[in-house]
C-alpha cells in the first residue's frame, strides 16, 4: 500500500469515527426530546408525584432540585473562592502546596457514590442531620468544591500579571489587589465556572440518594415558616430531586406510567443543563463586554 493510499484510508476512517460520535449524540438528544417533550403538560409541572397511579407530576422534585442547587452554590462558592485565592496568590512553591493540590485532585477524582456514602456517614448519621436538604447540600458541596476551585483559580491566574503589579506598585496589599482588581477582572470566568458547575450539580444523583433521601414529602407552597415540615423553605426535610426521582421510578418499577414520567423528567433535566450551558456562555460574554467596554 502506498503512503498516499494509507493516508486516504486513515482520513476516511477518522471522518467515520467522528461522524458516529455526532450521530450518537444526535440520536440521544432526539430520543429524549421526542419521548419526553410530549409528556409536558400543565399537570406534569404542577402536580406532585403519584407512586401507584397514572398522571403524577414532578413539581416537588423540580423545586427540590433548584433549592438544593441554590444552597449548594451558596455554601461551596465562598470556600472555593477562598481556596482559589490562597492557591493563586499566597501559596508558596513548596511541598505543602503540592500536597494541597494533590489532595484537591484526589477529591475531584473520587466517585460521586463514595462522596454520597461519606455524606451519609458524616452528616446523616454522625451530625444527626438525617436525610435532609442540608445533608444533601453538604455532600454536593464536597462533590463541587474541587472543580469549582480549579475553575476559579484558572480565571484568577488568567488575569495578566501587569494588573497585579499595577496594584502592588500603588501600595495596595496583596489582599486588596486580589479583591479590588483581580477578582472583578476575573468575574466573567468565575461566573461561567459557577454556572457550569450548576449544571453538574443539577443532574447529580449518586451523591444524593443517601444524603437528601429518596422521598419527597408533600409541600405547601403557601407555608413560609422554615421550621414547618411542609414548608418549601425547610432545610431539614428529606428532598428527592429530579435526578434521584428518575433513578427511583426506574429501579422500583412501581409507577404504572414510570417510563413516561422518567422520559419527561429526563427531558426537563437535559433542557435545564442545556440552558445552564447557554446561560454561562451568554453571561460570560456580556459581562466581559460590560467590564472591558469593548
Amino acid at each position: 500500500m502506498t503512503p498516499k493510499k494509507a493516508d486516504k484510508i486513515a482520513v476516511n476512517v477518522l471522518y467515520g469515527l467522528s461522524g458516529i460520535i455526532v450521530l450518537i449524540l444526535a440520536s440521544l438528544l432526539t430520543y429524549i426530546l421526542v419521548r419526553g417533550v410530549p409528556q409536558f403538560s400543565i399537570e406534569f409541572f404542577t402536580q406532585p408525584a403519584k407512586t401507584f397511579e397514572v398522571g403524577g407530576g414532578i413539581i416537588i422534585q423540580l423545586y427540590n432540585s433548584f433549592y438544593l442547587l441554590l444552597l449548594t452554590l451558596l455554601i461551596s462558592t465562598p470556600v472555593a473562592m477562598g481556596a482559589a485565592i490562597y492557591l493563586s496568590v499566597y501559596a508558596p512553591q513548596n511541598s505543602f502546596t503540592t500536597f494541597v493540590r494533590t489532595a484537591i485532585e484526589v477529591l475531584s477524582s473520587l466517585p460521586s457514590i463514595v462522596v454520597g456514602l461519606f455524606g451519609f456517614l458524616m452528616f446523616v448519621v454522625q451530625f444527626k442531620l438525617g436525610f435532609s436538604i442540608l445533608s444533601g447540600a453538604l455532600a454536593l458541596m464536597i462533590f463541587n468544591l474541587p472543580l469549582l476551585t480549579r475553575t476559579i483559580e484558572d480565571s484568577l491566574t488568567a488575569i495578566p500579571s501587569s494588573q497585579r503589579e499595577g496594584g502592588l506598585a500603588l501600595g495596595l496589599s496583596k489582599w486588596e489587589t486580589v479583591t479590588r482588581i483581580i477578582l472583578p477582572a476575573a468575574m466573567p470566568g468565575i461566573i461561567t465556572g459557577v454556572i457550569l458547575s450548576a449544571g453538574r450539580i443539577f443532574g447529580e444523583a449518586a451523591a444524593l440518594i443517601y444524603t437528601a433521601g429518596q422521598s419527597a414529602p408533600a409541600l405547601d407552597f403557601t407555608n413560609w415558616n422554615p421550621m414547618s415540615i411542609t414548608s418549601p423553605l425547610n432545610i431539614m426535610r428529606p428532598a428527592e430531586t429530579l435526578a434521584v426521582h428518575i433513578w427511583k421510578i426506574n429501579s422500583e418499577g412501581l409507577m404504572p406510567d414510570g417510563p413516561d414520567v422518567s422520559a419527561g423528567a429526563s427531558a426537563v433535566l437535559i433542557l435545564a443543563v442545556l440552558s445552564f450551558n447557554l446561560l454561562a456562555r451568554y453571561l460570560g460574554k456580556k459581562i466581559q463586554k460590560k467590564i472591558t467596554s469593548a
Binding site: 429524549i32 449544571g199 426506574n250 437535559i270 443543563v273
Partner: peptide, 10 residues
C-alpha cells in the same frame, strides 16, 4: 453535561 441517570434511563 448529560446527567448519568439520563444515560441509565436510555
Amino acid at each position: 453535561g448529560i446527567p448519568s441517570v439520563v444515560y441509565g434511563f436510555i
